[in-house]
């Protein structure tokens, strides 16, 4: 990616990580990917009451090239799936995906031929947000959790190590044990 990826681990990298995490989390620009009913709740979240602008996120970038976060809001049909993947590919790193609503997370109530049963069949998802549709407060909660993750994301070699650690932790999770909060990182 950038210079920050090539720094050797050490004090310098840790400080850069903190600054980079803070900067990235403070102005995440969502890509407008509102599809269906959840898009209306996304639209209300940008309204004056639940104000997305307080997170610096009101500048929803229509061009995926400048977007950081893709909020897949709504049901993804078979026809829309390649478009979704293309938009995701056009986003530049670092990028995150929130699948908003049950239709994006798992196909929702539409268990049929026309809907992709979960957008994680197509793009890697960071946060799954259930709800039909989720309230704006729920969406903001998921965005705040994503901000936590972004703040704690490591760079370069530390990142590779972090990914490996998290992967192993996840593989060890049985369905009955919930992840402890300190494990809930990227």
């Amino acid at each position: 990616m950038g210079l920050e990826e090539k720094l050797p681990s050490g004090v310098l990298l840790t400080s850069v990580e903190k600054v980079a995490g803070w900067a990235r989390a403070r102005s995440v620009w969502p890509a407008t990917f509102g599809l269906a009913c959840c898009a209306i709740e996304l639209f209300q979240t940008g309204g004056p009451r639940h104000d997305l602008a307080r997170f610096g996120m009101e500048r929803a970038s229509a061009t995926p090239r400048q977007a950081d976060l893709m909020i897949v809001a709504g049901r993804v049909s078979q026809k829309m799936a390649p478009v979704l993947r293309q938009i995701y590919d056009q986003m530049s790193e670092p990028k995150w995906v929130i699948s908003m609503g049950v239709c994006a997370s798992s196909g929702g109530m539409f268990n049929n031929y026309a809907i992709v049963q979960g957008v994680d069949h197509i793009v890697p998802v960071d946060i799954y947000l259930p709800g039909c549709p989720p309230r704006p407060e729920m969406l903001m909660d998921s965005i705040l959790k994503l901000h936590d993750r972004i703040m704690n994301m490591k760079l370069g070699k530390n990142r590779d190590r972090q990914i490996t650690e998290l992967e192993e932790a996840r593989l060890g999770l049985t369905p009955l044990r919930l992840a402890a909060p300190e494990e809930a990182q990227l």
Partner: peptide, 12 residues
């Protein structure tokens, strides 16, 4: 043609 009766709903 999906809405014909002989076309399955296609769910999982």
């Amino acid at each position: 043609h999906p809405q014909r009766k002989d076309y399955p709903l296609g769910g999982i």
